[in-house]
Nucleic acid binder design. Sequence first.
DNA 1: GTGAAAGCGCTAACAA
DNA 2: TTGTTAGCGCTTTCAC
Lengths: 333, 333
Amino acid sequence: MEKQNVTIYDVARESGVSMATVSRVLNGNSNVRQATKEKVLKVIDALDYRPNAVARGLASKKTTTVGVIIPDVTDGYFSSLARGIDDIATMYKYNIILANSDDNPDKEASVLNTLLSKQVDGIIFMGNEINDDLRADFKRSDCPIVLAGSVDINNSVPSVNIDYADAVKNETERLIKNGNSRIAFASGSMKQDVNKEYRLKGYVSALENNGIKFDEKLVFETKGTYEDGYDLAERIINDKITAAVATNDELAAGILNGMTDRGVSVPQDFELFTSNNTKLAKMMRPQLSSITQPLYDIGAVAMRLLTKIMNKEEIDNRYVVLGYEIVERDSTK
Amino acid sequence: MEKQNVTIYDVARESGVSMATVSRVLNGNSNVRQATKEKVLKVIDALDYRPNAVARGLASKKTTTVGVIIPDVTDGYFSSLARGIDDIATMYKYNIILANSDDNPDKEASVLNTLLSKQVDGIIFMGNEINDDLRADFKRSDCPIVLAGSVDINNSVPSVNIDYADAVKNETERLIKNGNSRIAFASGSMKQDVNKEYRLKGYVSALENNGIKFDEKLVFETKGTYEDGYDLAERIINDKITAAVATNDELAAGILNGMTDRGVSVPQDFELFTSNNTKLAKMMRPQLSSITQPLYDIGAVAMRLLTKIMNKEEIDNRYVVLGYEIVERDSTK
DNA sequence: GTGAAAGCGCTAACAA
DNA sequence: TTGTTAGCGCTTTCAC
């Protein structure tokens, strides 16, 4: 015997009112007499009635779910953002459809489409490479979208970030003050605008401000993994580099271990800054000095911003830049 | 001017067929003449038509969405499972609604309810404490559910796991063979059956098999965080303990750093095994010896199992136990 | 304050 | 192979 689901019609009948009235109490519409309301509530409880969100979505054109596109949940940086997103979403009664994209444009486009077909009320996008195709898809979609911890040089979509260029500039200058002149810029993919358009420029301007000539041989582009960093250490040693700024923590962790495993003392003979201050930074030995991004907050603020856009509220600032700090731990002098 | 969405009706009209036919080509029903199909496809393309999944869900009673309840996305163990889940889900054309529970029974119950109201086709549950209330909710739900990397002593729900007791027993015996007799069991919450009913018992039986008397003073219950581990190190030193088995990697990382920061040499003077072999294990120095769970696979297999249940396929084994191994790295002799 | 009824956009019999 | 027609379970005018 298949269990028959109880519908709004059943509770209407049982409580001797119309569906409309039941719907009203469900939605907190004030135009219901207190007595009626209580009667309906009682029946709802007795029947263990649970409104069908799909039917609701079809009728109201609101699904109370938002799509979240993430490169990889397994990445501590993005999962921290995701946590902030989910918490705020929950607070505003939204659910989250989470989809991994691996930063792959095809997957991103495909997942964006299925999210739209699922009629999500909004989308939070995290990704490192926003190209023209994607921008076009965003534009066509007619669905509120905000970027979290992800830059779009065109500012074609609202976003929340920190000032990546300034942060890296700051780190680099500290390294310079500590007496380093051969400072590596250890980066993830240069296809990513955060790296190419922001972080690298911050690095370069720090150099220039201090009369150090930019040497592109000191720019190391990798895929940003721990292993990449570990291998990179060898080249760093060979190139007589005395310090580095890394664009993400796993990469930095690899560099750090690669250096110390090869007998280099950190920070005495090599100084290292990283960029995300994920849990990892404190777990490494020596502990990594880092930019401290408010990761959770970036996600939380992005989601909050999205709720405002979905509600068509007035937005004072569509391009939020959160503050960052720098913690000097044991990988710098 | 609000952009009016194109519906299946528009496509039908434009291509001079009925909605039913359009629906058929959309759903790959073979009962459509090739010529008709192409004509319809052309119109779909021209109109940039995208089927409304919500309407579809209401009519077909299938949403191609599954709910995923996770303690915390930020936890490397669970996010690895989540990645496996999402990949297989995508492969089978499902999307995932992800919800963090913090292992909090109230949140779990609440999120389970909203997931059900959203008419998910199935649910993957990850969580460390499955109590009677939750079991009852599962039962009442009438929705396929599978546990991933999470044990239910009652086996009331299909699940995929490894043999946690055996794994810990194995680790403990290696520690004993290395000459240790005062071995700590450093655990997360003992309310969690994985710890209390499986891991601890594995630990105890290893002791017994080797004629070592179980001493409950060597069982340390914590909340399982890095900080907990770090602080625990002090007690370990005071208690003249020479080895430990930790129930999760962050806890182990804390113990390791806590020991070495306090001047204890690992593995010379203290040996340590951990349990999850997340990325962290290789990043620590010395690197952590660990059980290697096939994290991604646990998630992937769980999702695959769920698809079978949702399709009402024949299931040979509802309680999948995946293999594990042990890697000895540098935190053990 | 409450009810009647028309959809929301699609699927799935059932006919033809 | 194709079309007609009920719904799916709810929200939302519009009356009263």
